[in-house]
Amino acid sequence: MALYSIGDVAERCGINPVTLRAWQRRYGLLKPQRTEGGHRQFDDEDVQRIEEIKRWIESGVPVGKVKALLEGETVNVHDGWTALQEELMSVLRHVRPAKLRSKIATMGREHPVDALIDHIFVPVRQRLGLDQNTARTMCSLLDGALIDYVAFCLTGARKKAGKDALLIAWGVEDRTRIWLEAWRLAQHGWRIDVLAEPLDMPRPELFPGQHLFIWTGKKPTRRQLEQFEHWQAQGFSIQLHETA
């Protein structure tokens, strides 16, 4: 029977090891074996269970209700993402930076990064962006806390084995999303550095020998695709970072 370390499973499933530990310790979703030295070891059934947990969470089920579903119980499943959005909005309304940082860190430990970005952070920022005055102030507070947390996560990811890359935003106005997309890439084995300011026109020749990700924030235009193909034809190690 094949056994895998928590690092192997994290890379295979696209889940942060911190999240796997939270699923085990706080929610009892996983029961890995232990080596004599106390290190977690997962088998193929564990991997299948992790993938099933991911599917439930990404479909909007609160992580606290997943165990009952896995055990075949009937539970009242509401839209978990909406509930988490409201929790974050509630924290923001109190305008307490320390509590906000703590809430973001807790979410980061308990949920897959892709799902957090797409179903919590982006929707909340969109809601705040529709209003003015107070909502914009809360959005600015949230953005600062998100960038602070993501920078911390990127620093940790760069200490691990992986592939180095630089993320460049092309024609993007939302600077905070640049950091969120860097965080997304970091969960897939990349040690990411960020060019914090978006560019009107990237210049890959300024970064010789580096692997570059280009993010346009939306579907690339025909002109952008043609330029991108030109860069590839010139031999640059460059790829588009596309999100759903």
Rank of each mutant, 00 (worst) to 15 (best):
R175D: 05
D143I: 00
L225W: 00
S59H: 06
V194M: 00
R222P: 10
F42I: 03
K31H: 12
T19C: 09
T216M: 11
V122L: 07
Y149F: 05
M1V: 06
E73C: 03
L195E: 13
D131E: 15
L142A: 09
R49K: 14
M138D: 02
K218C: 00
W56V: 06
G171H: 02
R40W: 01
K218A: 13
G64F: 08
P97L: 12
R109N: 11
G217V: 05
C139Q: 13
I214S: 00
I104Q: 09
R125C: 07
I238T: 14
P32C: 07
E226T: 13
V194S: 00
T216E: 08
K218T: 15
S102I: 06
K160T: 13
K67Q: 04
R223C: 00
V194R: 07
K103R: 13
A182G: 09
W170S: 03
I168Q: 02
M1N: 01
L225Y: 05
G171R: 07
R49E: 03
N133W: 07
D8P: 06
G14T: 03
A10V: 09
R26Y: 08
L29V: 02
G209P: 01
A68C: 06
G38H: 11
I57N: 09
I147H: 01
P220Q: 08
K99T: 11
L185E: 04
L195H: 13
M201G: 04
W23L: 04
N133R: 14
R177W: 02
L185D: 00
W81P: 04
R127L: 01
Q132C: 02
N76E: 15
T106S: 10
R109E: 11
S237R: 14
H94T: 13
W231Y: 12
L29M: 08
E86T: 10
A135C: 10
